Simulated assay, not measured.
Amino acid sequence: MRARALVPAVLAAALLTVTGCGSDDSSGSAGASTPAASPATSAAEQASPSDAGGAGAEVPEALAFSGTTVDGKPFDGKTLAGKPTVLWFWAPWCPKCRAQAAETAKVAADYAGKANVVGIAGLDKNAAMKDFVSETGTGSFTHLSDEDGDLWKRFEVTEQSRYVILDTAGKTVYEGVLPGGEGLADKVAGLTG
């Protein structure tokens, strides 16, 4: 049990050594490839397909994943199908992530029903993730707890305060850092018309 408790700390230390707390590189890779497929586990959908905008939409391979929200509810990535999706990878102790929180929440509210915004928290324990959501006022949109880093690996994210933006077909159209979330609204507007 003690070794299990050390895994997040070792992973966080390794990432900090390599990346710091996310770089200010906002170049992103507009042509980034869709992440490699990994088997999805069968979790109950958090929202019905009609709530997800994915009613009848073909589910791209990028959205064939499942997880658990920071509140302990099952989540199925298939519910995101049919709309552009912002995946925001953050860590509770990261000051750059905190700086992105307000703009990310604003984009989630402004584009509700037109685009999905999902936070994917990692590099710490779920209790710290829940505190971050509460303290930053970002509870209006879904946050997944990724303590084991499975979703971070799936989307090839190696540092926190990173955005992965997918179009309606599930293709990655942006991957990178947006300091303070600046430019996020423009990127989402470009995908929603």
Rank of each mutant, 00 (worst) to 15 (best):
R2K: 12
R2Y: 13
R2F: 15
A3F: 12
R4L: 11
R4W: 08
A5L: 12
V7K: 02
A9N: 08
A9Q: 13
A9F: 11
V10G: 04
L11Y: 07
A13R: 06
A13G: 15
L15C: 04
L15D: 13
T17V: 14
T19V: 08
C21N: 10
D24Q: 12
D25T: 13
S26P: 05
S26V: 09
S27V: 10
A30P: 03
G31M: 02
A32S: 11
S33M: 08
S33I: 07
A36C: 05
P39L: 12
P39H: 10
T41H: 05
T41K: 07
S42A: 15
E45T: 14
E45A: 14
E45F: 04
A47P: 01
A47H: 10
P49G: 08
G54M: 02
A55N: 06
E58S: 15
E61H: 05
A62I: 05
G67S: 10
V70C: 01
G72Y: 06
G77Q: 13
L80V: 12
A81P: 09
A81F: 02
A91P: 06
P92Q: 03
W93G: 06
W93Q: 11
P95A: 11
C97Q: 01
R98H: 12
R98A: 12
A99G: 10
Q100M: 06
E103I: 07
E103V: 10
A105G: 03
K106Q: 14
K106L: 04
A108Q: 01
A108M: 03
D110Q: 07
A112N: 06
A112Y: 00
A115R: 00
N116C: 08
V118Y: 05
G119V: 08
A121I: 06
G122F: 00
G122K: 01
L123Y: 12
D124Y: 00
K125G: 04
K125V: 11
A127D: 15
A128L: 07
K130F: 02
E135V: 08
T138N: 01
G139F: 03
S140A: 09
H143T: 03
D146Q: 04
D146P: 12
E147H: 02
G149P: 14
D150V: 11
W152V: 02
K153Y: 02
K153R: 14
F155S: 01
V157R: 00
T158N: 09
E159Y: 11
E159I: 04
Q160A: 13
Q160V: 00
R162E: 09
R162L: 14
L166A: 05
L166P: 02
A169C: 00
K171P: 04
K171R: 10
V173D: 01
Y174P: 04
E175K: 12
G176H: 04
G176N: 07
V177Y: 09
L178E: 00
L178F: 06
L178I: 10
G180M: 07
G180C: 13
G181R: 01
G181K: 07
E182W: 02
E182H: 14
G183A: 05
G190M: 07
L191T: 02
T192H: 07
